[in-house]
Design a protein around this nucleic acid. Sequence first.
DNA 1: ACCTTCGGGACACCCCGTTGCT
DNA 2: AGCAACGGGGTGTCCCGAAGGT
Lengths: 197, 197, 197, 197
Amino acid sequence: MAEASVYKNPTFRHLLAVTEELISEKGCRSTTLKDIMDRTGLSKGAIYHYVDSKDELFGLLLQSKVLEFNGQFESAVDAAVNSGYEFSPFEVIGKNFALRQDHQDAANQIFVYLLSQENEKVTKILHDVYQFGKEKGIKWLRSGQERGVIPSSVDINKMAVLFMVFSYGLRMKNILAPNEDTIELRDIFKWLLKSLT
Amino acid sequence: MAEASVYKNPTFRHLLAVTEELISEKGCRSTTLKDIMDRTGLSKGAIYHYVDSKDELFGLLLQSKVLEFNGQFESAVDAAVNSGYEFSPFEVIGKNFALRQDHQDAANQIFVYLLSQENEKVTKILHDVYQFGKEKGIKWLRSGQERGVIPSSVDINKMAVLFMVFSYGLRMKNILAPNEDTIELRDIFKWLLKSLT
Amino acid sequence: MAEASVYKNPTFRHLLAVTEELISEKGCRSTTLKDIMDRTGLSKGAIYHYVDSKDELFGLLLQSKVLEFNGQFESAVDAAVNSGYEFSPFEVIGKNFALRQDHQDAANQIFVYLLSQENEKVTKILHDVYQFGKEKGIKWLRSGQERGVIPSSVDINKMAVLFMVFSYGLRMKNILAPNEDTIELRDIFKWLLKSLT
Amino acid sequence: MAEASVYKNPTFRHLLAVTEELISEKGCRSTTLKDIMDRTGLSKGAIYHYVDSKDELFGLLLQSKVLEFNGQFESAVDAAVNSGYEFSPFEVIGKNFALRQDHQDAANQIFVYLLSQENEKVTKILHDVYQFGKEKGIKWLRSGQERGVIPSSVDINKMAVLFMVFSYGLRMKNILAPNEDTIELRDIFKWLLKSLT
DNA sequence: ACCTTCGGGACACCCCGTTGCT
DNA sequence: AGCAACGGGGTGTCCCGAAGGT
């Protein structure tokens, strides 16, 4: 998950912002290059100067959102730790889960859209996003262990993977059956904790 | 999940079979109508006589695979029950999980592909597939309860939904990171057992 | 050089006619698909229904012109034979040479344009056109031999190939240096006659 | 055919060398500016600093090859003259013909490619190349006349033009029907000599 | 002089879906 | 039940220009 430097370029940032807007409005499949051209004011050549394909554009947008989310996450953890308040990991991670369940969120839409992708670059981005989430989870779990909230017997790595699996599964469920069978986060936590001790 | 009668038509069955082949070979996105036309020998008009869009074709193929899988599942349960042997639900459900993790499987590819879909018909099919899986899970859990393998305190419905979420999540994980963090079936069984008590 | 039947379709004939017009006006490279669409009133899809690529369209146009020219040639020979007049082969072949030297002629432009082509279909068409010309030459030479105008010692096949080479060479020269070193038809006749004895 | 001085610049020479390589490998049409950029390591701007268009680049490459060939030709003639050996024009000119028949040769490919060109600069280069070849032929024929190998009655200019026409024609034939109807050089010489005396 | 980054737009081709005829 | 003909939108490739840095 490197080369975040690209995201500094104002034209490129604009390109990403517009793309995100459009995806939120009309979804990935319906967002055409022409739409992007029209709203950014950029030409096809300009866009293809920054990316190699529409899918890569979507992929980079996803990556940027993940990167951005990471910043928020880190700040939240730091704040919780430094404030001296009781460390409440469930709130932070809960937000993460909540976001992941928001079907309209552009990042989620892109994620799902890119899953059926053969493109190598995109595959790499997707894999990076997964790794990134897992590592973040590990970090958070470890922090919980240090504070005694999570039993030290728990296999952190396995637990993190399980978190990811559930997180992704929830996303899918929310697409398939948005308003039925709402799952409470506390149920999942209960389940996971029980399973892992 | 009705109108399975359509699947009787030999031309349509041929159409589905060819489509499945192609998807297994090249993936959903790369499978074009032209490919299908060439290999079936059918013209565009003939294909559109059976379906309204390519996505619907994919959707119906997915549905047919689910229906087919159901038959196998029911037989397995019946066989286990009638054989007088110890009821071994984990084997059956394990197969299900295993299948869902097979990234090459056409049904899985279609499922993922159709997730990023706006089409109403397709949404319905996807929802049906979800419901179908959930109901199957409920049936299986209830059967377990009746035999005393599963404690009666378990909320069958909630548990079935959890299973679905977990199943879908595994599928995603397998696409994103196929060879890392492999989750063993035995681990899954362990968790399931623990969570059920 | 088969499947002349395609040329019966009125839409396709129109397509060819318009393409020929455009090439005569602006040359091959400058004739775009949009030009053809605009003037034929056909859509992109309609055009690609008949041909697989622009180059193939050009190739088929060339083929049709050669076919058409053949008809004229055959008639001319028949007329000469049947009229009882002295057989004057040079006039007919002379016309051929003259046509080949006309740089503006669409067929010539296409021919030159397609020479730098990798496309397999196009290569085949070009080769067919060559063969076709050679065979026509052979026929004509043989007919001359039967009438005693051409000595029987002449190697008909070799001579036909020489004619082709010469014909193509003239075409090139006319593109490269249109107004210099003009080669008079009478000179060509003189050479041909001398070389034949 | 002036300004050979440009060819001294090492970057430009590199540019030409790479372009020649690529054309030999993939042909003119398939050789894109991007290919050239990638292999030279030069940027678009750098390339356009030396040439005004891709066609001009190809044209200059052709010119450089012709210039280079000329050096070899002159040396060969001088060597033949000075060595005191019997002047053997057929060998030298034969090499020329042989080269022209090599379809893979980059110079030939470019030549054919540029024929269908409207660009003024390119037209000029092509014309120059023609003139250059003709003059070389005249020089050689005159030398042959002085030595009595060629009858003095032959119109040198006309003969040179005929040579060019045949040379170009052979090139075309070789593209169209590479392995059929191989023409022996001696046949052409025989024919030309007969025709011109 | 030499080279780069950024940007523009024309173009070819692919691909899905519709229509009317048999 | 099946098909040829057709429409037209979408993507990515490609050549090139402009502005500016070294």
